[in-house]
Computed example of a mutant assay.
Amino acid sequence: MPTPTRILVPVDLMEGSRAIIDYAVQLARPFNASIEVLHTWEPPQYVAPDLLVAAPGWNPQSLEKTALDAARKELETLIGAFKGAGPLSQRMEVGEPASAILRVAETGGYDLIVMGTHGRRGLPRLLLGSVAQKVIARAHCPVLTLHVTEEK
Rank of each mutant, 00 (worst) to 15 (best):
P49A: 09
K83E: 13
A67I: 05
V104C: 03
L63C: 06
V94R: 12
E15Q: 13
G16K: 14
E64N: 07
P4N: 07
V9H: 11
P56H: 08
P30K: 04
T5R: 14
L102D: 08
A19T: 08
E76H: 11
G129I: 12
R6C: 01
G84A: 05
W58L: 09
G95W: 05
T145Q: 01
P142A: 07
I20Y: 06
T149D: 10
T5F: 07
L13P: 08
K83Y: 01
A19S: 13
A81K: 15
Y23N: 09
L123Y: 14
E106D: 13
E151M: 00
A137W: 10
A24P: 14
Q61F: 00
K73Q: 15
I79A: 05
K152G: 10
R91A: 05
P97Q: 14
H147E: 07
V114S: 10
A33S: 10
E36P: 02
I35A: 01
V94T: 15
H140A: 07
S130Y: 12
D111T: 11
Q45I: 01
P43R: 11
S89N: 11
P43A: 05
P4K: 08
S89I: 06
G16F: 03
P124A: 03
E74P: 00
G95Q: 08
A67P: 10
H147N: 02
E15R: 05
S130E: 09
V131I: 14
V104Y: 01
V11R: 15
K65R: 15
T5S: 13
P30T: 02
I20K: 09
E150V: 05
N32L: 06
L27V: 06
K134V: 00
E64D: 08
P97E: 05
A71N: 14
M1S: 15
A100K: 11
R120E: 12
A100T: 10
L78N: 04
C141H: 02
A98Q: 14
M14N: 12
T5G: 14
G86P: 10
P56V: 09
T149Q: 15
V94I: 15
P10L: 00
I21H: 12
L112Q: 09
P10Y: 11
V47Y: 00
I20G: 07
E106Q: 13
L127H: 12
